[in-house]
Structures are given as structure tokens and as C-alpha cells.
Amino acid sequence: MKDASQDNTGTPTPEELREQVERTRDKLGQTVEELAAKADLREQTKDKVAAVKERAAGKAGTASGRMRHLTEQAARRVKDRTPDAVLEESARVTAQLRERTVRVGQYAAVKAPDPLRERAERAAKAVRANRAPLLTGSALLVAFLLVRRSRGRNR
């Protein structure tokens, strides 16, 4: 049976040809866009970098949380195993150190030259800004030394 849109010779009409050309153009445009997206190395690199950054941030957050948890556990264990007399002496020595530090700071503020004072202030700010890592590191060092000391006794 003949299609009404074709003439008697079986060739498509001009309207059908236009539609066919339009469909082909659409398909070709989509194909070109897909190929351009695949060839866009810069965009692919950006996407991969973003994915790697996201994974790294997630892993860093997880590791940080785990490290914080382990540090807290270690600090609790050290505190639990430390005799009360040692804790009290530690608190007393800490108070003395704070008092002496204040006195030395006051003396240095009066006697030290300006450039030295400025450097000391910058160092103090850096220590205050990084207090948590410094305390964590100190706690880990104490825990390590206590474990090492106890293992030495057990041999």
C-alpha cells in the first residue's frame, strides 16, 4: 500500500524531506553536544578534582573525629591511672607556672625591646590559635611515654 505522502514513484515529498532533515539535524546536534562534553577535558578534570576533594574532606573529617575520640580515650585512661597525689601536684605546678609566666611576661614587657616583644606576641597568638592541636599532641606524648614506661617495667 502506498503512503499518501509519497508520490507515485515512491520518493518522499519535499515536506517529508524537510522533516527528515530536521530530525537528522537534531540528532546531529545532540551527538555533537555529547562529543563536546566528552572532549571537554577541563570540565572533566574539574569534576574529578571536586569529587576527590569531597572524598578527601569526608575522610579527613572521619579521621579527625576518630583521632579526637582516641585522644579523649587516652586522656581519660591516663587520668584514671594517674594517682590523685600526682594530679594534685600537677595542678599545683601548673598554677605556679602560670603565676611565674605572668611575672616573666610583665618583666619582659618592661625590659624587652619592641621587636622582641612583637615577636613574642605573635608567637603567643599562634600558640593560642593552635591550642587544641598542641594539647592533643602533648596528651599523646604523655600517653606514649607512660605506655613505653609501663612496657619497660613489664619486661
Rank of each mutant, 00 (worst) to 15 (best):
A74W: 03
A74T: 08
E33A: 15
V78A: 15
D7Y: 06
A74N: 09
R100E: 09
V52N: 06
R42H: 10
R81H: 11
K79E: 09
R25K: 14
K111P: 00
E99F: 12
T82V: 05
T24K: 12
S64L: 08
E34F: 07
E72N: 14
A36N: 13
S150V: 03
R131P: 01
P12S: 02
A139R: 13
E54S: 14
K59V: 10
G58F: 01
L141D: 14
R76N: 15
T31Y: 06
R131H: 14
D84F: 03
S150I: 01
V21C: 02
K27I: 07
E43L: 11
L35D: 08
R131Q: 15
D84Y: 04
S5K: 10
R100M: 12
L97S: 07
A39V: 03
L35N: 08
A143P: 01
D84G: 11
E33F: 04
R42W: 05
R149Q: 09
L97Y: 01
L87P: 00
A56W: 11
G105K: 03
D47W: 02
Y107N: 05
V21Y: 09
A36C: 01
T13F: 06
R66V: 06
A60G: 01
V93G: 02
E16I: 07
V21S: 06
E89P: 00
A74C: 05
A56S: 14
T62F: 12
L141G: 11
A95M: 09
E72H: 05
D84W: 05
A60D: 04
T71E: 12
A129L: 11
E19H: 09
S150H: 03
E72V: 04
N154L: 08
L116I: 15
D80N: 14
G65K: 11
L146W: 03
L141A: 15
L17D: 04
Q6Y: 14
K48H: 10
A126S: 07
T24G: 05
V110P: 00
T94F: 02
E89G: 00
A4M: 09
P83V: 06
K46A: 12
M67Q: 06
N154K: 07
S138R: 15
R155C: 00
D114E: 15
S150K: 03
L135R: 15
E99Y: 11
D7G: 13
L116H: 08
R55P: 01
T24C: 02
E22P: 01
D7C: 02
R151S: 02
V52G: 01
V93N: 06
A95I: 00
T9R: 05
A124S: 14
A56N: 09
P113Q: 07
M1W: 08
E33G: 04
E22V: 06
T82G: 05
R66P: 00
R100T: 04
E89K: 10
K53R: 14
V147N: 05
A139F: 03
D80M: 07
V52A: 14
A91C: 03
G58P: 00
D7E: 06
A50E: 13
R119P: 01
A63W: 05
L140F: 06
T13I: 01
K48F: 07
R18Q: 13
T24I: 09
D26N: 10
A36I: 01
L35A: 12
R103W: 04
R119S: 10
E33C: 02
R155P: 00
R23V: 06
V86N: 04
D80Q: 10
Q6S: 04
K27V: 03
R68K: 14
L41T: 12
E89D: 12
S90R: 11
V21P: 00
T11F: 13
